[in-house]
């Protein structure tokens, strides 16, 4: 069954027609072409599909698009400002927080949510905040360092 849904993604307004069982993840990737958001486990355990919905980190594989009527979504594509990488993205590059890169969009969105809530998180709070995103390459240390660096500079 088709449903009309309107929402914003990265500040831009969209109205889409989707099947009622379409997930936000699929709408973002297949309908809007925003393939930065990744599909991993599809059961909310790996966090690769993390986006911010109304300012909070959520798994876009566990949300039906019809549920986000009127919502505001931020994806990894929306982090860049005026063609420049965000401080978190810069720090991920600088600290080698990326290896295969598959978790990076989800990790960046989780990190964005952490700093949005608390610009000066403790190491524990950072670990807790990224616990819902699996990275099988880095061992997390570089990711934590990158987030800490941004927090330290007060750029979050």
């Amino acid at each position: 069954m088709q449903e009309k849904v309107s929402f914003t993604v990265n500040g831009k307004e969209y109205e889409v027609e989707v099947l009622s069982n379409e997930r936000l993840l699929d709408t973002l990737r297949d309908n809007l072409g925003l393939t930065g958001t990744k599909e991993g486990c599809s059961i909310g355990e790996c966090g690769a599909c993390t986006v911010l919905l109304n300012g909070e980190a959520v798994n876009s594989c566990l949300v039906f698009t019809v549920q986000v009527q009127g919502g505001h979504i931020l994806t990894v594509e929306g982090l860049k400002k005026d063609g420049k990488l965000s401080p978190l993205q810069e720090a991920f590059v600088k600290y080698n927080a990326v290896q295969c890169g598959y978790c990076s969009p989800g990790m960046l969105m989780a990190a964005t949510a952490i700093l949005k809530k608390n610009p000066q998180p403790s190491r524990e709070e950072i670990k807790e905040g990224i616990a819902g995103v699996l990275c099988r390459c880095t061992g997390y240390e570089q990711i934590i360092q990158a987030i800490e660096a941004v927090a330290k500079k007060g750029e979050g």
Binding site: G44, G47, T50, E56, A57, V58, N59, L62, V63, A110, A113, E128, G129, A131, G132, V133
Partner: peptide, 9 residues
Amino acid sequence: VGSVQIRNR
């Protein structure tokens, strides 16, 4: 419960 993402929803 779960992760931040799960707890938010």
